[in-house]
């Protein structure tokens, strides 16, 4: 049995006709991934700055724990998220299990260690003199920090694109905390898992193609920005 030919034909038809199931899965995936990446960046960038630039007791231990957590399996995050969000759990009264916001929380937990670690490297890669010079020249701590961010902008961009890539391609958290509800929490990856189960490869292939295009777009944007910043 060869499913490849008819699968690709069906996938092409769905892409050309902007199939509502495909579009809705893309919308949900991009929406939750953007939100989670944004929130994780807001938490990870300041934390990474402090860990990368300041010296304090316990810094090494925190960095080691974060490094370990960067590789945490997504199903573990899904399980922890489930325990937090289930109706009788600590955050149960918000009724966030099986909602897009529930997926965002799970992805946030997944991304924070990863993005903090990457932001830490980005801040540490900037010569310490840049921060010190800014402070000596009378810059406020915020401005000094922003100077470091500016110097290490490519590292921060890498953090954001890596985080987004992890979020949009993962399936464990989206399945366990979203529940794969059609049109509401069905992401590209959970839709692909379901359609493959059903033996309907058309939709799965169409979504796979879009996922690749999104990754390609994000990564080539990053390379373009890097190319430009190196030329300047």
């Amino acid at each position: 049995m060869n499913d490849l030919g008819p699968g690709f034909a069906e996938a092409w038809r769905m892409l050309v006709t902007l199939d509502p199931d495909v579009m809705s899965a893309v919308q949900v995936s991009v929406g939750v991934s953007v939100c989670a990446t944004g929130l994780a960046a807001l938490a990870g960038a300041p934390a990474g700055f402090i860990l990368g630039v300041k010296q304090f007791r316990g810094r090494g231990a925190i960095a080691a724990v974060l490094h370990t957590l960067t590789g945490i399996p997504t199903v573990v995050v899904g399980l922890v998220g489930y325990i937090l969000l289930t109706a009788h759990g600590p955050l149960g009264s918000f009724r966030l299990l099986y909602t897009p916001a529930g997926i965002v929380i799970g992805l946030f937990l997944l991304l924070v260690p990863l993005m903090t670690t990457l932001c830490m490297s980005a801040a540490a890669a900037v010569p310490a003199s840049a921060h010190e010079t800014a402070l000596t020249l009378g810059a406020t701590p915020l401005r000094a920090a922003l100077a470091v961010v500016r110097e290490g902008r490519f590292g921060y961009l890498t953090a954001v694109t890596t985080g987004f890539g992890r979020a949009i391609g993962e399936v464990g958290v989206a399945m366990m905390l979203g529940g794969n509800i059609r049109g509401v929490t069905r992401t590209m990856t959970t839709a692909m898992a379901l359609e493959t189960d059903k033996g309907m490869f058309g939709l799965a292939l169409a979504l796979g193609a879009i996922l690749l295009v999104i990754s390609l777009f994000v990564n080539s944007s990053l390379h373009y920005l890097k190319f430009r910043s190196e030329r300047d």
Partner: peptide, 21 residues
Amino acid sequence: NAMAVFVFAAMALLAGCQGKD
């Protein structure tokens, strides 16, 4: 001040995400 800006930005983003839902 800087922390306040950060918290405000986080809340704005959260509100944006909620609005999308």
